[in-house]
């Protein structure tokens, strides 16, 4: 689609959307959000780019192959699930690590977050695979 308005706004929006998707993923465990919805927002950002600039430009923007993202995401998610098994818990049990950071805040790291990162990558990878399969011809 050749629209100046769409192109200009897309360039502004895509950064905000990608940032928003990461924000959604990070807050996901305790609040509404999560890797899945974050991944969808990221994929939607790329979809917007495809509409504005075409599939070729979008593939250049993403740089990596979507199927690679899918593979890495799947690996990260399975490894996050297996981490609990090493601790003697059932598969997919969450392990938590809480650290105080300067400024009075608390930093929570967990395998749950790692799992969400995996889900995020899987969602982005699979939606983009579909998108490019439908568009790239």
């Amino acid at each position: 689609m050749n629209s100046l308005i769409l192109r200009t706004t897309t360039q502004l929006l895509i950064a905000i959307l990608l940032l928003f998707s990461v924000f959604l993923m990070l807050r996901g465990h305790d609040l509404p959000g999560g890797g899945f919805i974050g991944g969808l927002v990221a994929a939607a950002a790329v979809a917007l780019y495809v509409i504005a600039f075409g599939a070729g430009a979008a593939e250049e923007l993403v740089r990596v192959q979507p199927r690679g993202l899918l593979a890495v995401g799947l690996l990260v998610a399975v490894v996050a699930g297996l981490a609990g098994v090493l601790g003697g818990e059932p598969f997919l049990s969450g392990l938590w690590l809480t650290r105080d950071v300067p400024g009075g805040a608390e930093l929570k790291l967990s395998t749950v977050l790692l799992f969400d990162v995996g889900v995020y990558l899987v969602v982005v990878g699979s939606v983009l695979t579909m998108l490019f399969a439908l568009e790239g011809r």
Binding site: R67, G68, A71, V72, L74, L75, V78, G81, L82
Partner: peptide, 15 residues
């Protein structure tokens, strides 16, 4: 289930 899932991920990465 986990074993083939893991190998699927590895196989995808080895494309």
């Amino acid at each position: 289930v986990v074993l083939p899932l893991l190998s699927a991920a590895v196989l995808l990465a080895l494309r």
